[in-house]
Every structure is written in C-alpha cells, then in structure tokens.
Design a protein around this nucleic acid. Sequence first.
DNA 1: AACCCGGGGCA
DNA 2: TGCCCAGGGTT
Length: 345
Amino acid sequence: MPDRDSIAYLRRVLIRWYRASRRDLPWRRTKDPYRIWLSEIMLQQTRVAAATSYYRRFLHRFPTVQSLAAAPIDEVLAEWAGLGYYRRARHLKAAAEIVMEVHGGRVPSEEMQLLALPGIGRYTAGAIRSIAFDLRAPILDGNVHRVTARFFRMSGRWTSVSDRKEFWSVADALVPQTNPGDFNQAMMEWGALICTPKSPDCSHCPVRKRCGALASNSVDQFPTPRPKVEMVRVSRALYVVSDKEGRVLIKRRPDSGRMAGMWDLPETVPSPVGQQEPEPIGRFGHSILNKRYRIDVYQVSTKNLNKLPGEDHEWVAREKLTEYPLTTMAKKGLELADRQQPRLI
DNA sequence: AACCCGGGGCA
DNA sequence: TGCCCAGGGTT
C-alpha cells in the first residue's frame, strides 16, 4: 500500500498538471449528473475521440433523463448505431426509466442506488459520484490500473479478482476528500496522454521523479499483460436486395444476443431455382472483438426473389435508412453496393 | 473465473 | 495484424 508521502505527492502534482493540461471535452463543461452519466457509459471501452460526436448528437436528441425515458428504444439505438456495445444503450434507456419512476427524475448520488441501475458498475458509480457530486469515491479503469501498476510497481493482473481488489484499495487510498472528481480525471488523463499502454512519454511525465517503474528502468514490465485471446476468422455473406423503387431490404436482429434489435442486411436470400451461386460484387473486412470477418457482398434484384421476406424484414427507402439502427457491417455493405453497378442474378 | 459484447485507431 | 480503449453483466 502506498505511503502517505507518495499519496500526497501524487495528489498535489497530478491535480496541478491536470488543471494546466486537461483536454477541453464536452462533458467537462457540465456538472449535470445525467450528462456525466451518459459520458461515462459512452466511454466504457470506447476512446474519447470515438465518443465525442455521439455524445453531442445523443444529448441533442435526448437532452434530459425524461426525454430518454420517454423515447422508443429503436430511436435510442439509432443514435447509438456505430458506437458498439449496444447493450449499453438498452441499459441506459432502462435505467432512465427507473430514475424517472423511482428517483423522481433525479440521478441518485448514493452508491447502492447507482449500482442498482442497469449498466452502472463500480467504476461508473464512482465516476458519477466523484465528478458530478464531488463525493470521495475511487475509480478503477484501464488507465488507473496501468498508471498505478507502473508508479507503484504493482504486478497484479487486470483479470484476477484478488489482484483487482488490491488496485481498488490503492485507488481508494489515493482519491482525496477535496476535488475527488478532478483527481480521478487527472489519473485517467495521465494514462491517456502520458502513461500510455505503448511507448509512454516518460520524459514529459509530471510524476516521473517518483515513478517506481521508471526508476528501475522497467516501465515495459508493467502492467502485467493480459492473457491473449485468439483471433477467429469468419466468412459471411450479405445481400443488398433492391426493388424497382430503390428500396432496400433490411432484417431486424433478435432481441437477445449480439447487436440485439439492430438492423442488418440479410445473410441469405432464396436464389432462383436452377441458377448457380452468383459472384459477389465485392468484399470487405470487419473486426468484432476477437472475430475477424471477411464479408462477401451480393446484389440482388427483386424480380428474381421468389419468396417474400419474413416479418422481421422491411423494405426501406434509402433516405429513411438513417432512422434505423443499422449495424456497421450493414452500412459498409450498403456503401460498397453504392459504389458498384447494379448486377442482377 | 471465464465468457460475451462493437468498433476504431495506431504501432 | 494485433492490441487496447473512462466496463458491465451473465454463466
């Protein structure tokens, strides 16, 4: 456990560095608990650069907890489309309804009440409490894990429950009573801008004089690397089916499982009897977690479609597609088809 | 503890 | 191409 001197040093130097060097991000211009909450959900496993534009659009469409709670889930998913981890959007929407019904529309500040909301775990509860409510609550994310591992030479793994507990204890010991939100954000900013996973910028690090890993020339030994996950290669076919009016056939994914409730391009289309498999109009690659997809895109005209689509299919005009929560794979497939000449099968 | 869940940026 | 990112939930 860190000594009092190190704790005081980190607090003093990091807060000062943060106030001078922090990025001007949209969620740093508000204390509105709903906005802080939204930013924290969007930033789960998602970089600042990816989340920023979504954050603005989402708040423009759903400026309050009430507006979010009242919205149809498909509109929420449409705003989230492209950001990934779509369960976050479903949880956020469900939690907004609970906040309306149970908490009178006010985001709670008590830890147990926050943890009871879907999509809010210990990290997010601590972030909301410290940043929006100025409460002394620790956070532990990938940044905090990495910077404390290096600074204090802690060898614990992210994937180990007991190791994680130790990092939570350190995070709790570090966070100060005053300005806990700034301190927590300073830790993350430090990890995002200076103490990065690869080639950290130690020469410009505000706390380099007391970094344990730097002093022992072993920055590359911390944190302990995660076990590797093997990449799986998957082949898939997508069909861009158009009718005479220029509408496109899309298919709603099931309400459970991956990309639940999102709209996709059909993966199979009944081909005319007696004809052989057509040539794809093109291919593209797409990675999801440990899966690397190679997707063949086919273009089909309806006059050769000998069976009506099921109830989970819809014909949609091109201009209306933005109203649907499309998967990124579907968007890539449609873009590819737009660049090709229509080819009948 | 292991697994599932998106997508993008970068070395 | 592989790795990581302001994690949470389920099994």
